[in-house]
Amino acid sequence: MNIKNKTVVILLFCLAVILVIVALLFPYNKRLNNLDFSILDENDNHQYELDEELNFKINDSTLIEDKKAVWYFGNGDSIVSKGSVNYTYEKAGKYLVTLKIDNKFDFSKQINIVNGRALTARDSISKIFAPDFGYVGEEIVFTGYSPSSSNWYWDFGETGTIDSYEKQAIYIFTKPGIYTVKLETDKTGYPVRKEIEIYPLYEPFKEPEKIDSAGIVINDIKKRLQIIANLGARDTRTYKEQVNYLKNKYICNNLSDVVVVVNEEKYNDFLSYCQGLHYLDGKSTIIQEVKLDTIKCFKQINITQKTKKNKATDEN
């Protein structure tokens, strides 16, 4: 074989190799045309902020499941991962985020990291968000608010020690009483306080199987109303216990949405009726009869009652 023929053979061989490589790479390149990634911010305000954890997510990780993927964040940091990654920028500025596949194919997006809202002295003032009352054995959620604070110290007033170090804490009281909840942070000079009243836990009402419980419910409500009527005006604690018992056990709406018909001629909402029974007619009213429009979640209650006679008046 002469030199000319050898040259032709070598050229044909090289061309065949190139065609094979192109044929192998073309489907892969075509698949990668569909590759993309998204950037999600932690607080979902569509603004990438300093010290905020960002999530970088590949739209379809199956396109690169057999390839090497490296994330470059434009500041010298990089993470090797074929799936989504989390990253937090420590300096504000514009960065070019690049996803590189097999050290050959680049997919880039520019991202702008901003300082966000500047904190003020008011942001160091702590607040407590929690209910005003609860029950023994109930999980009660306490939430602290102070955007500039990092450390939290909760004292719920029952143990005499620090009970939690979380921004949002859950606590279960074991005894009834009025407790002073204290919250300190790394920014407060003195703790902030909030009072919460804890009531005894009532045993759940157990209905006999397949038995009409209307009489039991009516007698129970009548009993509770009579307790309210018999209380002294200063006994607000027992008053609250009885009202909350009736509300939690039998009423599904607000107390002010339940209609009370007294002796078939007077009308009140349930809360106003109980307040009047306690503060105005206390120790002078006898609850004679109670009727409900429905046993469960009643919206109207008809009450027949009378006023106790004064013996001194009768003698005169």
Rank of each mutant, 00 (worst) to 15 (best):
M1W: 09
N2Q: 08
N5T: 13
K6D: 08
L11D: 02
F13N: 04
L32A: 14
N34C: 06
I39T: 11
E49I: 01
L54I: 05
I58R: 00
N59W: 08
S61C: 11
E65L: 09
E65D: 14
K68I: 14
G76Q: 11
S81E: 10
Y87T: 11
T88N: 09
Y89M: 06
G93C: 08
Y95M: 09
N103W: 03
F107Q: 08
F107H: 08
I113S: 04
G116R: 03
T120S: 15
A121T: 12
D123F: 12
S124I: 03
S126K: 04
K127S: 07
I140M: 02
T143R: 14
S149M: 02
W152Q: 09
D155V: 07
D155I: 10
I162S: 13
S164Y: 05
Y171V: 09
Y171M: 01
Y171K: 00
T174M: 06
K175S: 15
K175E: 15
P176I: 10
P176V: 12
G177L: 05
T180Q: 14
T180Y: 08
K194Y: 11
I196D: 06
I196Y: 02
E203L: 10
E209P: 00
I216F: 06
I221L: 09
A233G: 05
A233H: 14
K247Q: 11
N248A: 02
N253S: 15
N254W: 04
S256W: 07
V258T: 11
V261W: 01
E265R: 09
F270V: 13
Q275K: 11
Y279D: 14
Y279R: 15
S284C: 12
Q288H: 06
L292N: 08
D293M: 09
K296H: 15
Q300I: 12
I303C: 03
K306E: 09
K311A: 13
A312F: 10
T313W: 12
N316R: 07
